[in-house]
Design a protein around this nucleic acid. Structure first.
Length: 452
DNA sequence: CTATGTAAACAAC
DNA sequence: GTTGTTTACATAG
């Protein structure tokens, strides 16, 4: 326990906001329900003259806000809620100013902690939103990078420092504690984005702009690291990119859990690799290759899914799902365990919640790969938050040091400081992990993920 | 041992 | 060449 606390403190980005109100206050529950998203709300997204959020907003045409698509995404609701509340009501922007000099630091404004606090109970509501209505943001008709107007850019670093829509005139450096780990920074970046979603390039750009990790111009190491983190940290999930830009990969979005609870250490999502120096490091080369191959397989699988989805998308513009492939319950089991999970996972990872085989023993055995036409709308109602059992009282959350009472899920005394607790209530998707039975054991097991 | 960072193999685009 | 996944290794704490 001391541990948990310690950890969360440590990850806590900035400080200690008075834990607040909202989360514990029953009334908070209603807020989201009454909330009705509109473009207006959106514009509040960031008051304080937040910069590129504004631009981002443009990316979400009003029409989408009214969409009747039943998809269960809730980003908007969340955004709106968290921002409005945190900014306008609960926390005046000024409250978070860590650096007086830069009154408009977007990062601070979007402070995760606040959101975290505010959001924490909203999870259930997410589903509500999801179910019946309007809100859903996944369908941004088009995503326009706030950073580049010329799509050609991307990886071409013609480093001209900034010509971003709004620079607040300030900044650049020092805005952020550059000491923060990648995961945290990415988190920040995403927190700033509408719908907490960004494409890789923009994340790069954000890094260039707000951090110094990207200092090293001609080295892609930092980019690699970013990608690595995106891939490995459960706080980030992929969502399809709408149309046009779709070819350049996914968009990355913060998981609702992440929004709520913050980013957890990336390591926890990594393989347990006992890999001690002694145990096994002797034939690194082949090993390396093996790993590469493995990644490759995953990539391929992922791509397959994507491809399929894309096809569906094009056929059904309005209904494409932006579910991270791996989270899609319709995800084809045939491929769920295409390869044995890493030898390293074996012990405690029957299923790694995050990227793979969430539904092992699952039923569907449908023909895969070729049923486009318009098949899998099924996945539509699935949403990420339902599945990640993102560990709660677990250590390592970047977010707020919620009091113990805070979380709805933090009920259990902590089986072991390390055990991510998963809200079963979150519902819905049960997975019959092929582990024989143990319906109860499941939740720990199943969500355990890479954790160790 | 854990959390991070980094390099790198590979696959699919 | 970019994006994404995954493993390996290094190192600070």
């Amino acid at each position: 326990m001391g541990l948990d606390e310690q950890e969360s403190m440590r990850w806590s980005t900035s400080g200690n906001f008075p834990i607040n109100h909202i989360s514990q206050d029953g009334t908070a529950f209603h807020v989201p329900m009454q909330f009705s998203p509109s473009s207006a709300d959106f514009s509040h997204y960031s008051q304080n003259g937040l910069s590129y959020n504004g631009n981002y907003n443009l990316a979400y045409p009003e029409q989408f806000l009214n969409s009747s698509c039943p998809r269960s995404y809730n980003g908007l609701a969340i955004n709106s809620l968290s921002n409005d509340m945190s900014m306008s009501e609960s926390f005046p922007p000024g409250t978070y100013q860590f650096e007086p000099t830069k009154p408009h630091d977007p990062v601070d404004l979007a402070d995760p902690e606040i959101n975290g606090q505010l959001m924490q109970l909203s999870d259930d509501y997410d589903r509500h939103f999801a179910v019946g209505n309007h809100i859903k943001v996944e369908d941004h008709g088009s995503y326009h990078s706030p950073y580049d107007s010329d799509i050609t850019r991307g990886s071409t670093p013609h480093d001209e420092p900034s010509r971003y829509p709004q620079d607040f005139g300030v900044n650049d450096d020092a805005t952020i504690d550059k000491e923060q780990p990648y995961a945290q920074l990415i988190y920040r970046a995403l927190m700033d984005a509408p719908n907490h979603t960004m494409i890789l390039r923009d994340i790069y750009d954000w890094f260039k702009k707000h951090t110094d990790k990207a200092q090293d111009k001609e080295t892609k190491g930092w980019q690699n690291s970013i990608r690595h983190n995106l891939s490995m940290n459960g706080a980030f999930e992929k969502v399809d990119q709408p149309h046009e830009e779709a070819r350049k990969g996914f968009m990355w979005r913060l998981t609702t859990e992440a929004i709520r609870e913050g980013v957890k250490s990336t390591t926890r999502y990594r393989s347990k690799a006992p890999n001690k120096r002694g145990t096994r490091s002797h034939h690194p080369l082949p090993q390396r290759q093996a790993s590469g191959a493995k990644g490759g397989q995953a990539a391929r699988r992922s791509a397959n899914l994507r491809r399929r989805n894309r096809i569906n998308d094009s056929a059904y513009a309005g209904t494409y799902r932006s579910v991270p492939a791996a989270f899609d319950p319709t995800f084809n089991p045939d491929m769920s365990m295409p390869y044995p999970t890493s030898p390293y996972y074996t012990s405690d990872n029957m299923s790694d919640w995050s990227h793979d085989s969430p539904l092992l023993g699952h039923t569907h055995a449908h023909a895969h790969a070729h049923n486009h036409g318009r098949g899998n709308e099924l996945g539509m109602f699935q949403s990420q938050h339902v599945m990640h059992g993102l560990p709660l009282g677990d250590h390592g959350a970047y977010v707020p040091d919620l009091g113990p009472a805070e979380s709805v899920f933090t009920n259990s005394p902590a089986s072991s400081a390390d055990e991510p607790r998963t809200p079963m209530s979150q519902g819905g998707w049960e997975e019959d992990v092929g582990l024989g039975g143990a319906p109860f054991a499941f939740d720990e097991m199943a969500c355990r993920g890479y954790v160790g």
